[in-house]
Design a binder for these strands. Sequence first.
DNA 1: AAACGCTCTGAATCTCGCG
DNA 2: ACGCGAGATTCAGAGCGTT
Lengths: 387, 387
Amino acid sequence: MSSGSVPAVAAADAAAGHPSSVAADSRSGWLDTIFTGDCVAALERLPKASVDAIFADPPYNLQLEGALMRPDQSKVDAVDDDWDKFASFEAYDAFTRAWLLACRRVLKPNGTIWVIGSYHNIFRVGTILQDLGYWTLNDIVWRKSNPMPNFRGKRFTNAHETMIWASRSREVRNYTFNYEAMKAFNDDLQMRSDWLLPICTGGERLKNGEGDKLHPTQKPEALLYRVLLSSTNPGDVVLDPFTGTGTTAAVARRLGRHFVGVERDPAYAEAARARVAAVEPAPSEGLVLQRPKRAEPRIPFGALLEAGLLAPGTVLTDARGRHRAIVRADATLESDGVVASIHRMGAIAQGLDACNGWTFWHAHVDGELQAIDVLRTIVRREIAAAS
Amino acid sequence: MSSGSVPAVAAADAAAGHPSSVAADSRSGWLDTIFTGDCVAALERLPKASVDAIFADPPYNLQLEGALMRPDQSKVDAVDDDWDKFASFEAYDAFTRAWLLACRRVLKPNGTIWVIGSYHNIFRVGTILQDLGYWTLNDIVWRKSNPMPNFRGKRFTNAHETMIWASRSREVRNYTFNYEAMKAFNDDLQMRSDWLLPICTGGERLKNGEGDKLHPTQKPEALLYRVLLSSTNPGDVVLDPFTGTGTTAAVARRLGRHFVGVERDPAYAEAARARVAAVEPAPSEGLVLQRPKRAEPRIPFGALLEAGLLAPGTVLTDARGRHRAIVRADATLESDGVVASIHRMGAIAQGLDACNGWTFWHAHVDGELQAIDVLRTIVRREIAAAS
DNA sequence: AAACGCTCTGAATCTCGCG
DNA sequence: ACGCGAGATTCAGAGCGTT
């Protein structure tokens, strides 16, 4: 992992076709780089299955007509850029299919993709994602704490945008989701599919020479922080095919992730490179997340007997003493003549199909009734200390 | 308007083809009726352009596989009904296109449609709505205050569903949106596109003989209350092509709207009819909404000076006295050398993009600090009295 | 009687590694 | 690829019985 080093943010004109700019067998030519050019052409030059995650903020195809005035007659600075103009839904669909296909090629088998949009485009994006074989994991609603009001009073205040989070295909189960970290992030409650965050304003919003916003749709770093924290690991490669002002790349670098960006507009691309170069990555020790229990070394129940923490003949009960079983020397339990593992015996006792014996069965430890999971923790600590 | 009368909730088998059950030139045969049958067949028997609004809760095509257990090993009662099974996305799309087309025929030119769904189906619904010519007005997020958790810790808690609100076509401008009523409903703030509401539980949830839920996906009445209050008027006709247990019809009747329902399952249809028959409509005088402000004459700020209600040189402040500005004779405000309208000055003072100066700026009226909107009301009354 | 604890349930695309 | 078994995993609110 090279998160501490300065990224190579030099320009590389992928669309113009310089073969040397993208090495087919190495990441050295394109990692931590923001390319100037069309994203489909640029992605075709990246190796297959080379990125861990994708965050895409494509044109929304807003289809605005005429200017929108505020109640005080000031003009709303709308998204009227050429890159957001499409001749028809069909043209937008073809564009969407093309870049989502190109993304699918460079995405690792267990990688995931995020796409953000509004009601103007997100339904078409979602449909095409499904049609291409991506498998939706969640749709996440970004609730804006400070949305633009509806000036005409003809609709509800459009106060949110939608992100779709999808794996590469239905069969994938080992995609990255830092469940425990997000739960801790959210005051020990599961992170929900609705996130309340302010829009990008103030010092975070990049300005042009005249002090106006540089880019019409710059996303807040807090949004990308949650996205990358939840679905990537330090050292992962994050691709943003519509880099814009480089929010994804900046947050990726801050969080010790690698990035690859593609941006069509040279001015945006240059601003993004300068922005990313100024980012100070977090120290790697700050990026360590709560380790999920699944990742802990497996301890067989017998290890508790070997360690002398439990003796054969000990009586185990459930938390309320309604069920009891005796520990045998071979690390099985016996109850009413039945012999089984701690898990099976817990299931049998409750009449269920399955049971986690570690948390179901209790023993007296230091005079207190405690789950045998506590003893497993002791064994794990001893193993960690010895190695 | 016949909201006070008992609706005709007798069954009518539209699918079986009784011509007498639907009169082509009168509403007497089908108004306030819940039909048993397939919705496309039933809608083809309704007159063209005959309903003011549609609320549709179609199958979501969940594509579940296997059983899901809670951590305590109890089984989640999943939606595994035949009506939610589709052979492919193509089959679901064909189904969706068919009923949305049938809906479009019976919808009045200025009518609107609501469709609710989850990430499993809503993208496809939204795409097809657009392809058929409907024009999206908003997507509304129903944030559930008490969603089912994610039991395996593999995704974000799926804590919301999405509703799409669309007009019949892009050109329509005179659709019903009770902007002021929704604003009043929301403590005088514009109603946003994210609504926090609990799921349907407790006494509101219809039960079968065994005390289990009668229908797997009954929607809360509060959701339909907001939908119908915002986008329909008393006396309007509301169609629900997937009536289920009749939540739409029940709330429509309570709010003095007419309804038409179609439900395929005879048991659900019968339960819905009984439910609706028990609904007591609200008294019609309770259904009068806040008069739209746009119908009020526009009063320029200068009119307050002309009327002598404010004098040049008067100091205005915000409600808490943190910002101040001086009224000039030309009806602009001045503060720290900056001159601007009441609205712009309010925005500048707060560092925001926009501000309603009428409610932001306050003056001492009869010794009390009050919003200058109070003075506008006085001017309006005088104008009304003079004419 | 109010408080408390236990049980039940809701549109859900919900494990993983080893043999 | 498939079967097997270890063992990891939940929030809000209603309802009901006990303290």
